[in-house]
Simulated scan of single mutants.
Amino acid sequence: MAPATPVVFIHGLWIHSSSWQPWQELFAANGYLPSAPGWPGDSDSVASTRAHSDAVAGIGIDDITSSYREHIRTLPAKPIVIGHSFGGLIAQKLLDSGHAAAAVAIDPGQIKGVKPVPLSQIRSALPVLSRPANKKKAVALTEKQFAYGFGNQLSRTESDALYRRVTIPGPGRVLFEGTSANFTKNSPAAVDVRNNERGPLLLIAGTNDHTVPEVVVRAAHKLYQHSHAVTDLAVLPGKGHSLVFDSGWREVADRTLAWLRSQNL
């Protein structure tokens, strides 16, 4: 019997890695070897991360990417990486650098070269970007901010429950790095979109996402069209930014598994 293929799940800004637990169970049941390490400074639990939020202050995109490269070196084979939001940006960087066999980027943070900046995206980022000092701090969302940026397609009851269960303070620096990417020569948000040697990539967009709107994901997909490597796009109607950990997560996970099978992965 062939060894199980490792799958590394990468969470996004403001979300704890435990949010991937249902995905890990599903992927294990489908013959994969899943893991979901947190970002540098994250603790094992939501409560502990909240209590020690200073540990994530000042962490940037390169720091996060390096930590996942270190984790990948401990695995028995090159993994599939699946990332959400800023985790989707990290997944693309790991694929580009040859550390992953394939990647799925779900509502991914925008890579350098993506130009659309919808108003809803600006509003979602304001809790961090409105204060320049936040670049060196850990920043937490309020329930109201989470409901707009993540839970806008959910009932307020479900949104508030998710807020209590999976949210953590996040490093403001990654958002400053992401939003300034097109004005920074050596931006950590840069990916070689012309790389012909990388593995397959699936980009997933939710039509009702406020934080990473569909137009942003489509723009990223367009940038990759100069590469001969597989780059697919899936658009999921009615999905907001919480799509990987809200009550509709299974639809997204099943779509991801189906694509992996289509790529013989």
Score class of each variant (00 low, 15 high):
Tyr224Ser: 05
His210Lys: 04
Glu251Lys: 14
Ala219Gln: 04
Tyr224Phe: 14
Leu203Cys: 05
Leu202Lys: 00
Val235Ala: 01
Gly206Pro: 10
Arg218Leu: 07
Val217Arg: 08
Thr211Ile: 02
Ala205Met: 07
Asp209Gly: 00
Lys222Glu: 15
Val217Cys: 07
His221Ala: 15
His241Cys: 07
Pro213Asn: 11
Asp232Cys: 03
Leu236His: 10
Thr211Asp: 04
Leu257Lys: 06
Pro237Met: 07
Trp249Thr: 05
Ser247Asp: 13
Arg255His: 04
Val215Phe: 04
Leu201Cys: 07
Leu223Cys: 04
Asp254Lys: 06
Arg250Gly: 05
Leu201Phe: 09
Leu203Glu: 13
Gln225Trp: 07
Asp209His: 03
Val230Asn: 15
Ala253Asp: 03
Asp254Cys: 05
Thr211Glu: 00
Tyr224Val: 08
Glu251Thr: 15
Leu203Pro: 01
Ile204Gly: 10
Val235Met: 01
Glu251Met: 13
Thr231Leu: 02
Asp209Phe: 02
Phe245Lys: 04
Val230Thr: 15
Val212Met: 09
Ala258Val: 13
Thr211Pro: 00
Thr256Phe: 00
Leu257Ile: 09
Val244Cys: 10
Trp249Glu: 08
Leu201His: 08
Asn208Cys: 12
Ser227Tyr: 09
His228Val: 08
Gln225Gly: 10
Asp246Ala: 08
Gly248Ile: 05
Leu201Pro: 02
Leu233Glu: 02
Val217Thr: 15
Asp254Ile: 06
Asp254Thr: 10
His228Ile: 07
Ala229Val: 11
Asp232Val: 09
Phe245Asn: 13
Ala219Arg: 07
Val216Gly: 06
Ser242Cys: 13
Thr231Phe: 05
